[in-house]
Design a protein around this nucleic acid. Structure first.
Lengths: 238, 238
DNA sequence: ATGTATTTGTACGTATGTATG
DNA sequence: ACATACATACGTACAAATACA
């Protein structure tokens, strides 16, 4: 862990614990330099992370203003695994693995994961229950060349933990697309849809640091249980 | 415009025009220093912007790899006004203003915009037509203390252009929440919902650089025309 | 209205660390 | 073992926006 990440985590903790209150300004950069005994560059990198993640708003001539973190609740946006998200969703979260097999990709998956006919993929389907109701149906395709020794236990626990922790892979970024779609028979079979005839579809491609796609996921949500929160900064135009 | 923003825009243009091809690596930081005759710090700030916006993936010991920008199409995520988004949505985009008045806020709006009883807000309702179909119903509440002289013409054109251009306000960030909801009578009255009985709701608070909320918006979309794209980076854990 | 201090932003330079190939 | 490339961290100087006396 680098110095600026340490300082980021410390200040973030201070904000989350309310030691820096929403609406107040943080100590200035030169003060923080002394407090942490680092250069201004290091302080500014830490503050940059805080700004990017919605903890502060920096303003020239004014200072760094602490934002109201309660309003944002927690990053349901970003790139976070279901397991990491679970504490936010509620107390009773379960995952049931309904399919787990190694197979050759069909045309669609070959294209999504940039594979050839002779390559292998893992197909993993999981139903997520929150408070006893099946509300999310995840279908994952993983490049099996990248994660050859995957087990069903790991799929039930957390794919990300296995890939990052055990394999040492670096998950870098993802593209997601959210749309609404008519419920399919699969949706009706596995989800407690009640009288909903639509689902919210979140399709994502996940990439490693070397820019290889390793995961293609379709996540289908019961609409009344779907919620996506986003924190977006305005990009200055030319 | 600062040097690093210039360089960001130039390299971004080169990527969008295909002069740097997806999968290739950009020239190294030291090469770019010479090419643009700037310091490494300046080059790295430009590359940092490119990485944050999904144009490149930086990798230590390897270089900065150009990502496939066609896949992402264009930032439907982020903080972008409807007018700025229009070119992406299609050729025939119209806005009709169906309500425009200055009023006192009710309890709900007072809370959302952090106002008092005696304050004023603008209520603006707009229907967005894409290819002849009414698919989005926007309801905006604006702090009228911040934008006193707003006109219906400006509301029809672009609120952001007025606020940033004419008033010189700095729009900094927004929080958005996406959910699905049952269609209301208002939705059915103004939108071409066909046989949809739900809408996708995007509720957002928009903030100025001094962290004042100035806009609270409810944007209701016909589900089959709703699409949200997101580019998310993985945050390294402690 | 003016000047001064404060605060963040930009830009430059240098050195060393770390991962990759 | 070596060269290459990005990452971190230190330093300095000045610019630009804001706040306040």
């Amino acid at each position: 862990m680098s110095k600026y990440q340490d300082i980021y985590n410390q200040i973030r903790g201070d904000i989350e614990r309310g030691e820096y209150k929403a609406g107040s300004t943080l100590p200035g950069e030169f003060f923080l330099m002394e407090q942490y005994n680092v250069s201004r560059d290091t302080v500014r990198k830490a503050l940059g992370l805080l700004a990017a993640n919605g903890y502060i708003q920096k303003s020239r001539g004014v200072g760094s203003i602490v934002l109201d973190i309660n309003r944002i609740e927690f990053p349901v946006s970003g790139l976070v695994s279901f397991k990491e998200l679970a504490p936010v969703l509620g107390d009773h979260v379960e995952t049931r693995v309904i399919a787990f097999e190694k197979m050759h990709p069909d045309e669609r998956i070959k294209k999504e994961l940039e594979l050839n006919d002779e390559d292998w993929v893992w197909l993993i389907q999981r139903v997520r229950k929150v408070d006893g109701e099946a509300v999310i149906l995840d279908t994952d395709f993983l490049n099996a060349q990248i994660a050859p020794g995957l087990t069903e236990e790991q799929a039930k626990d957390s794919l990300f933990a296995y890939l990052e922790g055990d394999l040492g892979l670096k998950i870098a970024y993802a593209e997601k697309e959210i749309t609404c779609q008519a419920a399919t028979n699969m949706d009706r079979r596995w989800l407690d849809l009640k009288d909903n005839n639509m689902v919210v579809s979140v399709v994502s491609h996940t990439y490693l640091e070397d820019t290889r796609v390793f995961q293609y996921t379709s996540s289908r949500h019961r609409p009344d249980k779907f919620r996506f929160k986003d924190f977006a900064r305005r990009i200055q135009k030319a």
